[in-house]
Design a protein around this nucleic acid. Structure first.
Length: 260
DNA sequence: ATGGCTTCTGTGAGAAGA
């Protein structure tokens, strides 16, 4: 089974890239973030024509998350149970593959936080705490769990192009990294790091200052798996190809392969 | 360098992203 995550920075703008990418990369599950559109505008028909079921939790202008799958999805849940949030940042579903395996997939768009001294940063920290408590229960309910998305956290200095310049800033601050580490301590594994120990691999590059060409990026999009799935993982790669297209998203897909 | 780009809203210029 192949699963991927991609922050598309507006599905309205990026739908052609998504359809082209799915055509070239036939995978079973794709989680999208920042669709930036209401459900009524979501391109269910175009995705269906491409062979994908889809579930979406969207809103106008900001946020918005979706799960696309070639397989049937059941038990769709929106948001973090018990956490009131106007912002559409989480959607979950159970994927049923052809051999009959059941995998619980959670698509997350973690709060950006803007700057460490902003109110949005405090919201980010509260949000991550709520995610953590909720996941504790979800892991018990669903042993085979994959959490894919834009975490807006670079877990360590290998995941940042210039740690000295970024020290203490948003995306790398100690409190954010501690919150990420607490997710890992629930018994989750950063699948990219199962296969690659070196730095210099990023999933986001700033649009400004030729960030991509100079590889001035951050690895902030992650695929975490629960313990029972760890040894089923066979590869996790960052596909830089879509970042090279005309009018790209500033993020690029991360792809996990598992042999169930 | 409180910048740089891109998207959104909505038709201006400002917010937000990361």
């Amino acid at each position: 089974m192949k699963l991927a995550t991609w922050n598309v920075n507006s599905l309205n703008v990026r739908l052609p890239h998504v359809l082209d990418w799915l055509h070239e990369n036939p995978i079973e599950v794709l989680c999208l973030q920042e669709t930036k559109q209401q459900d009524i505008k979501f391109p269910y028909n175009d995705l269906k024509a491409a062979g994908y079921h889809a579930v979406h939790s969207g809103q106008k202008t900001y946020n918005g998350v979706a799960i696309l799958s070639t397989h049937e999805m059941t038990d769709v849940e929106h948001g973090i149970a018990g956490f009131e949030d106007e912002q559409k940042r989480v959607i979950s579903a159970t994927i049923h593959d052809d051999p009959g395996h059941k995998i619980r997939v959670i698509c997350v768009y973690v709060v950006n936080g803007q700057a460490v001294d902003s109110e949005k940063y405090e919201y980010k920290m509260r949000w991550l705490e709520a995610l953590n408590s909720w996941l504790t229960g979800e892991l018990k309910k669903y042993p085979n769990l994959v959490i894919l998305g834009d975490y807006n956290i670079a877990p360590d200095d290998r995941d940042c192009h210039d740690p000295a310049a970024w020290e203490g800033s948003i995306l790398v601050s100690p409190r954010e990294r501690d919150a990420y580490e607490e997710l890992i301590e629930l018994g989750l594994h950063d699948t990219f790091r199962l296969f690659e120990a070196d730095g210099g691999y990023y999933s986001w590059w700033d649009y400004r200052m030729m960030g991509f060409r100079r590889n001035r990026g951050m690895r902030i999009d992650h695929i975490l798996v629960s313990d029972p799935l760890k040894n089923k993982c066979t590869s996790c790669i960052i596909d830089k190809a879509p970042r090279k297209l005309e009018r790209p998203s500033d993020h690029t897909p991360v792809v996990l392969e598992m042999h169930l």
